[in-house]
């Protein structure tokens, strides 16, 4: 590793559009708000969940176990907030704050030891869109065929699915509701456009019946 070099600041796929997203805020009971949360650390983890390595990796990440139920999400308590998202029966995404990817990768590789697994830094592969507010679910329902009703989905759950024509990792954060949409960088402008379009109607009063 070269010693301290000032690298250019990472440029997220939507950094040019931050003002457009902010300008689309809708307040009040029909409120909805869209933001990009740029440059989160993201590390793909692949291993056999029944292997001893899985327990070691979970422990190293500060978790009692990796989430093994489909759509499970676990957040580790610790100085650095790291969350593990279930993506498949032997696949997880570890999400952390910006710049945390090398540390995550090192921790996981160390815990993996000679156990078989794969660790890939994919931080720049996807960006995060946060959509929140009372009408956030209604916006998503215009393009997502998943059942997002509280009886079927909620905080602490994630799913890989399609939103409009883009593949996303959809994660519910709270009951506001707030959702995080992890989307590939190349799709981010399209998805932001689609969301802004879908949000427009909430600026107007509800259509009378």
């Amino acid at each position: 590793m070269t010693a301290e070099v000032t690298t250019p600041r990472a440029r997220s796929p939507l950094h040019h559009r931050a003002h457009l997203l902010a300008a689309a805020d809708v307040e009040g009971p029909r409120g909805v708000r869209l933001r990009e949360l740029p440059c989160a650390a993201q590390v793909t983890l692949r291993l056999d969940p029944s292997s001893p390595a899985a327990a070691r990796v979970a422990g190293a990440l500060g978790l009692p176990a990796l989430p093994v139920e489909p759509g499970g999400v676990r957040t580790a308590a610790g100085a650095t907030e790291r969350t593990v998202l279930w993506l498949g029966p032997d696949e997880w995404l570890v999400v952390g704050p910006e710049g945390d990817a090398p540390a995550i990768e090192a921790v996981v590789r160390d815990a993996l030891g000679d156990g078989h697994g794969a660790v890939v830094d994919v931080s720049a592969n996807r960006t995060t869109l946060e959509i929140s507010g009372p009408c956030a679910r209604e916006v998503l329902e215009k393009g997502c065929s998943l059942d997002l009703h509280p009886r079927a989905f909620g905080p602490g759950r994630c799913a890989q699915t399609l939103l409009a024509r883009a593949a996303v990792i959809l994660r519910q954060i709270d009951t506001g509701p707030t959702y995080h949409l992890l989307v590939r960088g190349s799709f981010a402008p399209y998805l932001a456009d689609w969301l802004l379009d879908a949000m427009t109607e909430f600026r107007s009063p509800e259509v009378p019946r």
Binding site: D90, G117, V120, S123, A124, N125, R184, G185, S186
Partner: peptide, 10 residues
Amino acid sequence: RVHCTSVTEQ
């Protein structure tokens, strides 16, 4: 013992 991960946009 192989895992494949898409890194197209990484």
